[in-house]
Amino acid sequence: MAEPLFSVRGLKVALPDMTRKPLIGRAPLAEILKGLDFDLPKGSVTGIVGESGSGKSTLGRALVRLLEPSAGKVIFDGRDITHLAEAELRPLRRNLQMIFQDPMSSLNPRRTIASIIAAPLKQNGLGDNLKARVAEALQRVGLPQGFASRYRHELSGGQRQRVGIARALALSPKFVLADEIVSGLDVSTQAQILTLLEKLAAEMGLTVAFISHDLSVIRRLCRQVIVMREGAIVEASATDTLFEKPQQAYTRDLLAAIPLPEIDDAWLLPAAKAPA
């Protein structure tokens, strides 16, 4: 395996639990991530899969340091970023990009697509030749140049997600976090967005953490997979190994629960009952 871009050791994240907040005073902390160890190898796509409450999104946000870990170490590209302050992080941001789940909420409604894509460029000292760079970013994700002057409400869901990708990749970052980026899309759009990401990741040699609840999508896109449950890693291995020889019962349950688009009368039967 290649040298890791991310090296994570004993990662813990605790967040205030608002459901248990007393009337007066601070909310108690709830431990969302309970000590994770893993590496993300350079230049490959790693899937992070889990059900709701598994902590997969929290993990993603800790990797790009939108959240500060409460314990453990996050080494990015040889540098310890676990507790870096916002100002110290800023020069690293261009290499820690993110594509969001909901492209509606992740695009500012009052900015044109061009201005949305240009923002990270300007902020990271690539403000020269902005027009050409924006045009290149649009072209890269297969959007016509005319979209530069549009607003988010004038775009379809798939187009919005393309803008999200264009924006994240405009800086040619070393790392991209993709958080459930196709879960809100129709299957046909989903297929387009995934093939686009697949192609760009290969062309640009990106290191991607692909968070998803859908193992089917992960199999296609990712070289290795981390399966999470309740803030801990259940299983982590190469994709083919995981799908062909899952080691853990939970992984097998997850696989068995996916309704494949094929007829299988036994799938819904708890016991050996004849189908009606």
Binding site: L66, R93, R94, Q101, D102
Partner: peptide, 22 residues
């Protein structure tokens, strides 16, 4: 709470900048 605020942090904007710009 909108994602575009986090998005601006990802882009490297500071807190005041995000407040005024986004």
């Amino acid at each position: 709470r909108m994602d575009y605020v986090e998005n601006a942090r990802i882009a490297g904007y500071g807190r005041i900048g995000i407040m005024l710009r986004e």
